[in-house]
Design a protein around this nucleic acid. Structure first.
Length: 471
DNA sequence: ATGTCC
């Protein structure tokens, strides 16, 4: 099973096992780090799926996931291809929102303890459930309307809608395709953060990389932003569980090398149902992040009083990194309509392919680092459709599994490390300290250099943390 | 990631 690695060009490597081929984007060090891990085996397994167009791509933050690695993208023929829940992941429409606070770094540091405390009061984190539980009917409406539902209730502005991926509302989410169990989990956890790598951070712009585009994104040197990383909570998890269970015993899935790659043919009724349910979960995910944005605006208003100007708490962008979508891409010399599966991978449309608010500019691509380290905002560059179906990475990417992190790292030491960096913290549990420690992740600067060097996206601004809230 | 196992 010897693997052959060849350098395609700078920051781009082809990996072959004599049967399948895949591309990985990254520095030589990133490639060496990934080689020999289960993630690469998973990436090559993906290449064996039917109806694939082009080859699977591993982004520099690639690491082992359920069936498909996290930090990967694959496209299938939109007519004769397939859809696989494992290619989207359990946390459907996990993603990141970035919002301006209108506050500068100095003011923020002065009030950071109170701000974190109040956000912690308003936003349930970790295992906590929603404070004001919505009805079954409301949750169903949210899965079909996305953030529109919040707009009609004064919890989202028109500007928020304009600055959300897919405008925060994907058409064609048929409520009947989502199970009662999923709705019931959705009722308990709407507007909650969750745990694991999910977080709320207050960050300041410490480096403006491209001043013209930073201005367009509303990112200014030393101003403070809130970054929110969460997804569709129990609802999305249940949708994934339901459909993975449903297709497990299909003949073509029993023949697979790895059962976790289970799929549905796009021509099947099950595929239609899954895509509809996935879109419903995605709408819930967009609305969940928006709900948290609304709660954070309330918290800032309460703590900062007259100093907080609501009009200045504008969204930069709210983007998904776990979703499958029908798109046109340049593959093997021609434009083809494909179903792109992005798992821990962020869409990075170049300026000319971006529509809506950021048309001609390119939408913000948000790449959070690990706890305590920098985060980057980028935009897609022309020609990236051919390289990675216009897809960037979604974060630093794990180097230590959760269990390993707990064994190797000490929470006290990590806490001291963050204190030394002048980062205020609020944790619902201590397990996040080791599991999410910078030591559990790859170096975000190297990930950033890989994406820029690989000509997928260009840097716009770098943000650094002042305060962090984790489940 | 996940009412951290139906």
């Amino acid at each position: 099973m010897g693997l052959k690695v060849s350098r395609e060009k700078d920051f781009s490597y082809l990996i072959e096992d004599g049967h399948s081929i895949a591309r990985v984007i990254g520095t030589e060090n990133i490639i060496n780090q990934a080689m020999g891990t289960e993630a690469i085996t998973q990436l090559l397994n993906m290449a064996e799926l039917p109806g694939k167009i082009g080859i699977p791509i591993g982004l520099p933050d690639i690491h082992q996931g359920y069936g498909f690695p996290i930090g990967s993208v694959i496209a299938f023929d939109s007519d004769n291809g397939i859809v696989s829940p494992g290619g989207v992941g359990y946390d459907i429409n996990c993603g990141v929102a970035l919002m301006n606070t209108g506050m500068d770094k100095k003011t923020c540091r002065l009030h950071i303890k109170d701000i974190l405390k109040e956000i912690f009061n308003q936003v349930p984190v970790g295992m906590a459930r929603s404070r004001n539980k919505l009805s079954r009917r409301d949750i169903e409406a949210i899965t079909s309307e996305g953030i529109q539902w919040l707009y009609f209730r004064d919890m989202a502005t028109e500007d928020d809608i304009n600055k959300t991926d897919y405008n925060g509302s994907i058409f064609g989410a048929e409520p009947a395709n989502i199970s009662e169990k999923a709705y019931s989990r959705g009722m308990n956890f709407f507007g909650t953060l969750g745990s694991g790598n999910h977080f709320i951070e207050l960050q300041f712009a410490d480096q403006i990389i491209n001043s013209e585009i930073s201005e367009e994104f509303g990112i200014h040197k030393d101003m403070v932003y809130v970054m929110i990383h969460t997804g569709s909570r129990g609802l999305g998890h249940q949708v994934a569980t339901d459909y993975i269970q449903k297709i497990r015993d299909l003949d073509h899935n029993k023949r697979l090398k790895d059962a976790q790659l289970s799929y549905m043919e796009l021509s099947s009724r099950d595929a239609e149902r899954y895509i509809s349910a996935m879109n419903g979960a995605a709408n819930y995910g967009f609305a969940n992040r928006q709900m948290i944005i609304s709660l954070i605006r309330n918290a800032l208003k309460k703590v900062m009083g007259n100093e907080f100007v609501e009009d200045e708490s504008e969204l930069v962008y709210n983007i998904s990194h776990n979703i499958a979508a029908f798109e046109e891409n340049d593959i093997e010399g021609r434009r083809q309509k494909v179903l792109v599966h992005r798992k821990g991978a962020t869409r990075a449309l170049p300026p000319e392919s971006t529509s809506g608010y950021y048309a001609g500019i390119g939408h913000p691509v948000i790449v959070p680092g690990s706890m305590g380290t920098a985060s980057y905002v980028l935009r897609g560059v022309g020609g990236n459709s051919k390289i990675s179906f216009s897809t960037s990475c979604h974060g630093a990417g794990r180097v230590l599994g959760r269990k390993m992190a707990k064994e190797k790292l000490s929470p006290e030491l990590i806490e001291k490390e963050l204190e030394a960096l002048k980062i205020e913290m609020k944790f619902a549990s201590t397990s996040a300290l080791t599991e999410e420690a910078p030591e559990s992740y790859k170096n975000i600067d190297e990930i950033y250099n890989s994406i820029v060097g690989g000509k997928i996206a260009e840097g716009i601004a770098r943000l650094k943390p002042i305060g962090v809230i984790k489940g």
